[in-house]
């Protein structure tokens, strides 16, 4: 399964991933994505996850074939 990895040191809560992956990512009261650092991405959300990676303004997202630890 693919894992979406979030680099917290880069993310500044620009919110794009929250809109693209509402099934996986919420938004906290400070504006940051409400998710764990590594989130398994179901097959059906693969495309949205790829778009989130491409469109993150801060280059904070990465996909990896690794399992979430």
């Amino acid at each position: 399964m693919t894992t979406l990895h979030l680099d917290w040191t880069r993310c500044r809560g620009r919110g794009g991933c929250v809109e693209l992956l509402p099934e996986l990512i919420g938004r906290d009261e400070w504006g940051y994505p409400l998710t764990a650092t590594d989130v398994p991405v179901p097959r059906a959300l693969r495309g949205a996850a790829e778009q989130a990676v491409r469109d993150c303004p801060r280059m904070a997202l990465q996909l990896s074939p690794r399992f979430a630890e």
């Binding site: 040191t9 993310c11 809560g13 400070w30 504006g31 940051y32």
Partner: peptide
Amino acid sequence: GQCGPCVNG
């Protein structure tokens, strides 16, 4: 001071 939830939380 790098990660939003740490700095805010």
